[in-house]
Structure formats: C-alpha cells, structure tokens
Design a protein around this nucleic acid. Structure first.
Lengths: 136, 136
DNA sequence: TACTTGCTTGGAGTGCACTCAAGGGTTTTA
DNA sequence: TAAAACCCTTGAGTGCACTCCAAGCAAGTA
C-alpha cells in the first residue's frame, strides 16, 4: 500500500526512447523537462542512462494536461517544485490550478466567440460559392 | 451605397495612437502588421503619417478574431492576400477558414478534457484543505 | 572485433510573434 | 517660436518552448 512496497522487483523501467514512443514527447524535450526541474528525480541505470517508471509516465501525462491548458512551462515548474516540497504546499497548488482553470474558461469563451465569427464567414462564402455555381 | 460614395468628406481618419487605444494593439504591432502584408493599404497624410479608417478598424477587429482562434500570422497573411486578390479566391478563403474552424473545435475538445482533470485535482486539494482544517 | 544503435552532456540554434532602439521628421501646445 | 508630444523607417533584440549539434561513452549484434 505504501510507495516503497509498490517498488517491487518486477517494476517496469523504460528507456528514454520507450517514453518518447509512449508519450509523444521527444527525447530532447524529456531531457529538457528534467533539466529545468519539471520532473521528479529520474532513476538511472548503472551506466547513467535514464530509466523511467510508470509513475514518471503518469506525471508526464498530467504535465501534458497542464500543457494543454496553455499553462506556461515556468508555472508548471513552479507546480512541480510545490509537489516536491510536500503536503504543506497543497493550498498554493490549488491556487495555481484554480488560476489556470479560470484562464482556461476565459480562453474557451474567446474561442466560442471566434468560432461564431468563423461560422458566419464560412456561411457567407458558402452562399457566394453556390450562387457562383448557379451562374455558370 | 458604393464605396467611393461612402468616402465622404466627413470620414474619420485615425492616427496610429488612436488605433492603438481603440484596438489594444501596440503601434509597433500595427506597423509590423502592415509591413508583413496583414493590412490592406493604409492611407497616409501629406507628410506620410498613417491615417486609419473605420474600415481598417473593422479589419483589425476581424484579424483579432482570427488571432483568437490561434491561427498563425502566416495564415492570416495568406488570407489577407486572398482578400486582396478578389472574388475568385472565395473558395480558398472558405477552405482556410474551415481548416481553422476544425482546429478550433479540436482545441476546445482538448481544453474541455484538460478542464476535467483540473476540476478533479482541485476537488482533491479542496478535500485535503478541509480535512487539514478539521484536524486543527 | 567491427559496426550499428542508443544514450550522455553542455551549449548553440530555431521559429514565432512581437518589441524595442536609433535617428530623424511633424504636429500640437504654451 | 520653442518645447513637448507624436510619428516615421530600418534593423536589431526579446521571450518562449523547444530542437539540434558535437563529441564521446555504452550495449547489442554479425
């Protein structure tokens, strides 16, 4: 049930190219994420090569969601720091996520509005195209 | 009714700083938009200063909507070119707008998905915060 | 053993969308 | 009329999020 127990002998460890295939993130980006502090510490093989765990993959999936929200990398790094610092940062993490959520909602409202304009224009062009065809 | 008739003596002409105030776009950006071909030809005063018309403001508002969709500047320039080329480009314009619309819809689906994750996480944190307060 | 493939690092390069600087002319206000 | 505010151009600089490069070590295969 505890974390150390779940780290059994059979735990799968992925090379960087396996993680690239699984996440769609390039090896460059994965190394860069680690460099800038966007990853919890990544395990290494005896020869120093990265060995990612399923937990790392989960984290990368979550980071992908944050990216999809449009959150900046700087904010994602801040969030990762807070996670590393432990439970007493929960409130700040929630704040950060709530701010992000508000931005997403604003973004979606903007998109909805722009979409309406697009729909209108496309309808106009569709009408022109039809009347052009009729004229022939 | 025709455009030349509407170009009456009383037509308002805006300086670049008026347009900046009205659109929120910086003077730098306005000049840059013109430079890269994102504006129809902008009128000049006898001394060479820009004088924007209401038509220009309308165009800038539309461009703002396109920006809001996430369309690249390169694509917006392409669209502006097509408009300048005349009625025979209507079909290509509609294609461009339809592609953009599809991207917007995809983007919105992504945002909806990410928003759900955010909601879930925030709820988790809210629960932790409450139980933390109870503990005191 | 030789070769291929994969991984390492630090630092440089890229593409996008602006954003600013320098040096100079123009218009408005006191 | 003089100062202050505004506008012009060309070209360089910025911030972000990657993306690539060089040089070298390591592991697996013919």
């Amino acid at each position: 049930m505890s974390q150390s127990q779940s780290l059994s002998l059979t735990q799968t460890r992925y090379t960087i190219s396996e993680v690239e295939a699984r996440t769609g993130l390039s090896q460059h980006t994965l190394r860069w994420y680690e460099r800038i502090g966007l990853m919890p510490h990544v395990d290494r093989s005896h020869s120093g090569q990265r060995r990612f765990t399923d937990k790392d993959l989960d984290w990368l999936r979550f980071v992908g969601k944050l990216r999809a929200t449009g959150m900046s990398v700087a904010d994602m790094v801040r969030y990762a720091e807070l996670v590393r610092e432990g439970e007493h940062t929960v409130e700040e993490r929630r704040d950060l996520l709530e701010r992000t959520r508000n931005e997403v909602r604003a973004r979606m409202a903007e998109l909805t509005d722009a979409l309406a304009v697009l729909d209108y224009k496309i309808d106009m062009y569709a009408m022109k195209t039809v009347s052009g065809k009729e004229r022939r």
